[in-house]
Design a protein around this nucleic acid. Structure first.
Lengths: 337, 337
DNA sequence: TTGTAAGCGTTATCAG
DNA sequence: CTGATAACGCTTACAA
């Protein structure tokens, strides 16, 4: 130890030690090569001695493909996003890609990191950001990097999106609330700018409107537990209390449940029906037993990957693809009296 | 569109269009270059027209540094690990690195992915795997890749570890339980092979032994909610019920609480004191209000990064570094009667 | 300040 | 089957 020299042995080093040409070494490591047993043996011996491991970097220059896919996330406080990240990572690895994980402060947009991703020559970008600005989308298109926007609809030749059917799910929930005896309705929203939040609210409203109900109490949270807690306190401090509340996601719903039970002194579901969205692990905990919607995670990931593959093989934009995957209602205790 | 040619413009393309040499282009993009205003202007114009963005790939070949740090995780069901991942990612990005995220099926070890990481010439590896086998550690050493093992002690010239003080914390908890009136004690364990689990149990036992208590009821879970739930049912089905139970982590503790409240019909903390470990977000939810230990996340990440930096500048192993960071007790409702 | 040229570690082509 | 040799896109002496 203690030297500051080269870290890795190169194929040239191996070739020298093995007494063969550099190309012989290269061939030895290519599947389906034409190398004699003799040569292969010498090469492998030398390689073992030098701890040689071929570098993938030059290949990137030659092929213009890095096999790197960037996944951009804005935060992982919501377990749903950790799960999505894990799903993508596993699938991408299976298909021979590597994942470059990029964190962008929530609120900020992709812009700041795009140049860096371009410099690393990523093959594609998966964005799990709540917000993907039109400007970012345009910038992305300039670099001709295929982008999959997860749960945020964007329109662009290079930017596709895979979303869950927020509106459709919310409409179904309206029916469920009515069937379970809900009479006065509430919606605790996520961040007002979030498309997912807006779609869920719109669907809920439509579903109720179909039954002639237009009066919905609202309160604004973010997508977090604390926000749901506070918003519920606010909503139930008003004189007209709802008896069926749809929350923008599970974290918000759980916060609301805790607020109702611990602070307001109401029972769920006896006094108030509650539902959320995402089916995060805590939704099925016995302490909450929350009615919610499960994303079809595997399907969403698969759709995203097939868009990527199409872009990869076409070496051209795949057009404005927008896939909507239905979510499935999971009814649990919070809507059953 | 529709062409299958080169995706990115190269500095040579820009040079041609700008009517200057390729090195002029390269210099224009190097800070502190010596380029005339005239040249710079021409280059920038051409670059803008071609959407040129310099590639970092050749630099990797030249410098033998990729600025890539791999983070290996075995699963993200435990929010604590998502938080750690996020913390590392943010800090690494701040210091000019990029994160290569690698997922290894829990149970499997690093071995399978090491060659790939070596091929991408990662500068270092952060392992958040529960288990890092001695064989893997040896393999890593052969490639001379500095490794930080997070929360799993390993000994090796190239492998350092940053762990939290599991045993010390557990000893403190023993005192707390006694102070709060605990008389019959239990431990719900995590995976028997996990060092963190073993250390926590050992510390708890030592802490109680110091007061002459050697009788501890045990049940085995994994590190998950369901495991804690089942283990608690099992533990409380026996005739001798404990009245103070330490759980291997927060997920297990929350599972145990739900089991006691919903199935056994015992109250927490009135009938049973409970404590966990990690301080995941749900630990502070009003529904649980769980006593637990907070990791000093920022400090642990900083320690890990300073080891990486040392390895990077030294171009040599940093020796067998083992950092132990204390965790802080957060007493909440589950230990207050 | 500029351009020429060598080299980084591979792969691919092409004679031998 | 094998070994030269030319890319790939950049950085860095070195020369002009």
């Amino acid at each position: 130890m203690g030297m500051g020299g080269k870290k890795y042995a190169s194929s040239t080093d191996v070739a020298r030690l093995a007494g063969v040409s550099q190309s012989a070494v290269s061939r030895t490591y290519r599947p389906g090569a034409s190398v004699s047993e003799e040569t292969r043996r010498k090469v492998m011996a030398a390689a073992a001695e030098l701890d040689y491991r071929p570098s993938l970097i030059p290949r990137i220059m030659l092929t213009h493909r890095s096999n790197l896919v960037a996944i951009v996330i804005g935060g992982m406080y919501n377990p749903f996003y950790s799960a999505v990240l894990e799903g993508f990572t596993v699938k991408l690895q299976e298909s021979g890609h590597q994942v470059l994980l990029v964190h962008v402060d929530s609120g900020h947009s992709l812009d700041a990191v795009i140049p860096k991703l371009a410099s690393y020559r990523v093959d594609a970008i998966v964005s799990a950001l709540a917000i993907l600005s039109p400007q970012s989308a345009e910038e992305l298109a300039r670099f001709k990097i295929p982008v999959i926007s997860f749960n945020t609809p964007v329109k662009n030749e290079w930017v596709s999106s895979v979303c869950c059917d927020n509106a459709g799910s919310a409409r179904i929930l309206a029916d469920l609330f009515l069937a379970r005896g809900g009479r006065r309705f509430g919606y605790i929203s996520g961040p007002p700018a979030s498309p997912a939040n807006l779609e869920r609210f719109a669907g809920f409203r439509e579903g109720l409107a179909a039954h002639g109900i237009t009066d919905i109490a609202t309160a604004t949270a973010d997508f977090r537990y604390e926000g749901g807690f506070r918003a519920a306190l606010e909503m139930f401090a008003r004189p007209e209390r709802p008896d069926a509340v749809f929350c923008a996601n599970d974290l918000v719903a759980i916060g609301a449940i805790d607020a109702l039970r611990q602070q307001i002194g109401l029972r769920v579901p006896e006094d108030v029906l509650i539902a959320g969205f995402d089916d995060i692990p805590s939704a099925s905990w016995a302490g909450y037993d929350l009615t919610t919607f499960v994303h079809d995670g595997p399907r969403m990931v698969d759709e995203a990957l097939s868009i990527l593959r199409a872009a990869e093989t076409a070496h051209a934009p795949v057009g404005e693809v927008r896939v909507v995957v239905p979510a499935r209602l999971v009814e649990r205790g919070t809507t059953r009296r």
